[in-house]
C-alpha cells in the first residue's frame, strides 16, 4: 500500500468524517433512548454501516417486527448500492485493480461513492490504497460517533439547537458540493430528472422508493439523452 495514496484518501474523507460524526452520534443517542445498550448500538454501526437503515432497524426492533421481515426491509433499503460498484469502476478505467475490493468496497456508502467519483472527475488517480484511506476515515468516524452518542445518552444536543441544526445540514451540503464538482452540461438532464422523480416518489410513496426511482430514472434519462462516457 503506497503511503501518499492512502493519505490522499484519508484527507479526502474529511468532509465525510465531519458529516458522519454527528449523524452517528444521533444514532447512538437514539439507540440508547430506545433501550439498547451501547454495545448493541455499536454492533449495528459496525455490522450494518448504513445510516438510514440503522435508524429504521431501531424502529423495527422496538416495534416487535419479526426478524426476517426487519432484515428484508433493511436489505431492500440498500439495494441502490449495487449500482455504485460498476459506476465507480467505469470511472477508474479498465486497468484498475479490484483485488482487495472485498475489503474496501464494504465502505462504499452513498457519501464515499460520491466523494470518490467527484475526486476521479477532478483528476485523482484511482488506487485501492486511496479507497482504503477514504473508506477508513468515514468508517472510523461512523463508529466513533456511535460510541460517543451511546455514551452521552439521550438529550445530549437538546441545549444546542443551532449546533444540532448546522451539523444536521452537513450531509445535504456535502451532496450539493459533490454535485457541483461533477456538474457539466450533458449531465443536466440526468440531474433534473433524478431530482424531480425523487421528489415525486418520496411524496407519493416513500423515501426509499423515491431514492431508487430517482436514481433509475436519472440513469434512463442519461441513456436517452446520450450522456456518453467522458
Amino acid at each position: 500500500m503506497t503511503r501518499p495514496a492512502f493519505l490522499d484518501g484519508l484527507t479526502a474523507s474529511l468532509p465525510i468524517v465531519i458529516g458522519y460524526f454527528p449523524i452517528a452520534f444521533s444514532f447512538g443517542v437514539a439507540a440508547t433512548r430506545a433501550g439498547f445498550s451501547g454495545v448493541e448500538a455499536f454492533a449495528l454501526s459496525l455490522i450494518i454501516y448504513a445510516g438510514a437503515s440503522q435508524f429504521l432497524a431501531l424502529a423495527l426492533l422496538t416495534s416487535g417486527a419479526p426478524v426476517l421481515v426487519s432484515a428484508v426491509t433493511l436489505i431492500a433499503m440498500n439495494l441502490r448500492h449495487v449500482l455504485y460498484g460498476p459506476a465507480l469502476m467505469r470511472a477508474t478505467g479498465k486497468d484498475a485493480s479490484t483485488k482487495r475490493a472485498w475489503v474496501w468496497a464494504f465502505g462504499l456508502t452513498d457519501e464515499v461513492f460520491g466523494q470518490a467519483l467527484g475526486a476521479l472527475a477532478r483528476g485523482q488517480r484511482f488506487s485501492e490504497s486511496y479507497m482504503f484511506g477514504l473508506g477508513i476515515g468515514a468508517y472510523a468516524s461512523w463508529l466513533a460517533g456511535t460510541a460517543a452518542g451511546a455514551a452521552a445518552g439521550g438529550g445530549a444536543l437538546e441545549g444546542w439547537p443551532a449546533v444540532s441544526a448546522g451539523l444536521g445540514f452537513m450531509l445535504p451540503a456535502l451532496f450539493l458540493a459533490l454535485l457541483l464538482s461533477i456538474l457539466s452540461r450533458p449531465k443536466v438532464p440526468v440531474i433534473a430528472v433524478a431530482g424531480l422523480v425523487t421528489v415525486g416518489g418520496t411524496l407519493l410513496v416513500s423515501a426509499t422508493t423515491g431514492i431508487l426511482a430517482g436514481i433509475l430514472s436519472g440513469m434512463a434519462a442519461g441513456a436517452v439523452t446520450g450522456l456518453a462516457r467522458r
Binding site: 459506476a87 460520491g114 440526468v190 425523487t198 423515491g210 430517482g214 456518453a228
Partner: peptide, 21 residues
C-alpha cells in the same frame, strides 16, 4: 453504456434531494 454512465450524477442528485427534502 449510457445508462450506466449516468449512475453517478443520478445517484448524487437523488441523494441531495432526498437529504434536503
Amino acid at each position: 453504456e449510457r445508462f450506466l454512465s449516468a449512475t453517478g450524477p443520478a445517484a448524487i442528485a437523488t441523494l441531495f434531494v432526498a437529504a434536503i427534502l
